[in-house]
């Protein structure tokens, strides 16, 4: 049998071989093996297919099939306005991703966070503060919105702007701290030059200088001695601030509630407190002010005048 003859056995089974081919094939050792196989196959039986019984079943099946198909193939068409609504929705989502993809970073009570901006400037957020910037436009305008307190180490480059509700700070590449809560803004410059504008007044800060302003009033200048804000070294430093603000800062740093009672929150305070130990902090804040403090619970403290 010729190996390349790929239908030889097919022809053999159909009795389509020449006498000579047949003779030759019958003398090969495979011949008997094939014969055995065919004999074996002949012994197989196919399962029974009862035509009449199946025809009866078929008729029953046809009935249920028709019912199922007419039930199952109901097509509910979308109303045209639904298409329109879906399209509008998609367009809005698209616009949102193009124009409003802002990054927001928050810190909670007793938490600071350091974040690297897309231009490699570094922002360190103090407790309970928020920054927000637009991913797309930031690389062009280097503009960022702040609520709370943060220290900026700005990479050199084009003008960098920090917007707060109490004023805007513009720099070229420096280190500076911004505090903007309620109606108070404080900016301290540690390196380079910083421009502060609260809408009415403007000041240019050089290293070691700072300004404070309440309610967009005149910018009072302040001298600073440290090389970076106190809170970056886990303490809060104050220079002539109201007791109210001191208490608010304590609450932020330790996630506690302070009940002021009859204490006058307009008194001024100068000094600092640590962020690492509440008892020490309370002592340093209230001892000099002649105020007693009592723990009502682990998170609530009551103040009383002596």
């Amino acid at each position: 049998m010729n190996k390349s003859d790929n239908n030889f056995l097919g022809r053999w089974l159909a009795n389509d071989l020449s006498e000579k081919e047949k003779k030759e094939f019958e003398n090969t050792p495979e011949y008997l093996a094939y014969k055995d196989i065919l004999k074996g196959v002949d012994k197989f039986e196919r399962p029974v297919f009862d035509i009449e019984a199946n025809l009866q079943k078929q008729k029953e099946y046809n009935q249920t099939y028709l019912k199922n198909v007419s039930k199952g193939s109901k097509v509910i068409k979308l109303r045209p306005w639904l298409y329109a609504a879906a399209a509008v929705f998609l367009v809005l989502i698209g616009l949102r991703t193009v124009f409003f993809n802002t990054t927001t970073i928050n810190t909670n009570f007793a938490e600071t966070k350091t974040w690297t901006l897309p231009d490699n400037s570094i922002v360190t957020l103090n407790a309970k503060s928020t920054i927000e910037y637009n991913d797309r436009s930031f690389t062009n305008d280097r503009s960022i919105t702040l609520d709370g307190e943060a220290f900026f180490d700005v990479a050199k480059g084009s003008q960098f702007t920090v917007k707060t509700k109490n004023g805007a700070i513009k720099v070229l590449g420096t280190e500076f701290n911004v505090y903007s809560r309620n109606t108070t803004i404080e900016v301290q410059c540690y390196e380079g030059k910083v421009s502060v504008n609260n809408g009415k007044n403007q000041a240019i800060l050089t290293p070691g200088k700072g300004v404070t302003s309440i309610d967009k009033s005149a910018l009072n200048s302040v001298e600073i001695k440290e090389s970076e804000p106190g809170w970056m070294q886990q303490k809060s430093t104050f220079n002539q601030v109201s007791l109210g603000r001191l208490i608010a800062e304590l609450e932020r740093q330790y996630d506690i509630t302070i009940e002021k009672g009859d204490v006058d929150t307009d008194r001024l305070f100068s000094g600092f407190f640590t962020h690492t130990d509440l008892n020490t902090a309370l002592k340093t804040c209230f001892e000099p002010m002649n105020i007693n403090y009592i723990f009502k619970s682990s998170k609530t403290i009551e103040l009383k005048n002596r």
Binding site: N6, N7, F8, L9, G10, R11, L13, A14, Y34, I37
Partner: peptide
């Protein structure tokens, strides 16, 4: 068909 028969065998 012939070819398939052959290959089957």
């Amino acid at each position: 068909v012939e070819k398939r028969m052959h290959l089957a065998l």
